[in-house]
């Protein structure tokens, strides 16, 4: 399967992806500290009732992130 580069906010429920990097942004530090480290794998597990935020599994725990913040996370679909 061909690998596809995109950002986290584009993924669909059930999609798994590897984090490839974070945008140059002052907010990126907090994302890094929450575990959004390049090389880690994540899986989108759901969306909130109105389509946003995203629910995802990262490093064995469940996180919730707004789509606009998820846009900072660059990923490669697995």
């Amino acid at each position: 399967m061909a690998q596809k580069s995109t950002s986290l906010n584009i993924l669909q429920v059930g999609d798994s992806a590897n984090i490839t990097g974070l945008d140059e942004n002052p907010l990126s530090l907090q994302l890094l500290e929450m575990g959004f480290i390049p090389g880690e794998q994540l899986t989108v597990t759901g969306f909130a009732p109105f389509g946003d935020p995203i629910r995802l599994r990262l490093q064995g725990f469940e996180l919730c992130i707004r789509k606009e913040d998820a846009a900072l996370v660059k990923v490669e679909l697995i």
Partner: peptide, 12 residues
């Protein structure tokens, strides 16, 4: 001035 993140853990 700066946007803030909305990210948090959903505990078990």
């Amino acid at each position: 001035v700066r946007r803030h993140l909305f990210v948090f853990e959903m505990p078990e």
